[in-house]
Amino acid sequence: MMSAILDSLDIVSRRMEQEQSDLKAVIKDRMQIRVTDTAIKDSVDRLIYNHCLKKKELQELFGLSRVTFNSRIEEATKEGIIRQPIIQGRTHLYNRFDVASFMDYMKHPKYSDRFDPINIVVENHKGGTGKSTTTVTLATAAALDLNLNARCLIIDLDPQGSTGQNLIHQADEDSVYMTAVDVALSSVEPDGDFAQYLASGYDHDELIKAIPFQTHLPNLDVIPAFPSDERFVDVYWGQDESGQKKLLTLLRDKIISVLKNEYDLIFIDTPPQNSPILWAVNETADAVLIPVTPREFDFASTSNYMATMP
């Protein structure tokens, strides 16, 4: 009987994997858009296309006359700073990567010129309150704000990992995935990837900077999470009081402190639980956002959670 159940589960699992593969192929096809630009043989990624700026919009950003702007953008194109725009009908479109390069070329004011970096934690121990949606929406909006001109990072610390993994735009097949939890536990996991790289002579800070993956926006990166990150809770409870205090501050002292030298706005998505993972995140927080849905039980649950925060 048990053997038959296991065989059935195996069949279902393999069928789901195939269906997921088929679904990814369909999604990939629908995420492409054809343009009239004859220089582009293949389709353009829809996410890239949707966030392109028209030439007129780019001109208005810098407040330059048409003649002056055209002169500067022609200079940047000739110097290889930016590529030729995408032609769609009579419209000239510049993708966000070229826009970012042109802004640097024009010395457009950056967030870091005016403000210090800030770490924003989105949390609620109740599931389904919109933590992931809030995190991604705010981070994307901030990254798209050209006047803000900030470098943004999303750190996914929910072990289910859907937020971070879905945001990765391109990753090589041989890419090494390391999470914030992998780094935080490196001192007690000598066989882990991060500890192994350190033992091989790599610099700690340079490794931290290399962990984020690129999204479809040039100034928005992401550090994904994986189900194995749940082990942080078990490791924490296996430590003595001194070890527990150290684990709670590692994320702040060894990871966020480094990332704040690279990013202006850091958004952290958290698991729906009140656990050592969340306590470690709160040690890093400059700001805390607690989404709550307008339902009686959700509001009551959030009220109870707020009472535990002090």
Rank of each mutant, 00 (worst) to 15 (best):
K209D: 05
Y197E: 13
D234R: 15
Q214W: 11
P218H: 12
E189F: 07
I208G: 00
P212Q: 10
L207S: 00
L207P: 00
I211P: 03
G192S: 15
S242W: 07
L207G: 00
I211F: 03
D205G: 01
A210F: 00
A210L: 10
V233K: 10
V235F: 11
A195Q: 06
H216E: 12
I223Q: 04
F194T: 08
L207W: 00
P218N: 08
A195V: 01
A210Y: 02
V222S: 06
E230W: 14
H204W: 14
Q239I: 08
A199G: 07
G192F: 05
G238S: 13
I211A: 02
D221L: 10
N219F: 11
V235S: 06
H216P: 05
L248S: 10
F226D: 07
Y236M: 01
D234C: 02
K209L: 12
K209I: 05
H204T: 01
Y197L: 13
I211Y: 00
L217F: 11
I208R: 01
D193V: 12
L220E: 05
K209R: 15
S187Q: 12
Q196C: 11
D240G: 06
V188W: 10
R231K: 14
D191L: 13
Q239G: 04
D240M: 09
L198T: 03
E230I: 07
L217S: 06
D193I: 10
P212E: 05
S228G: 09
Q244C: 05
Q244E: 09
L248F: 08
V235D: 12
D203E: 14
V188P: 04
T215K: 09
D229C: 07
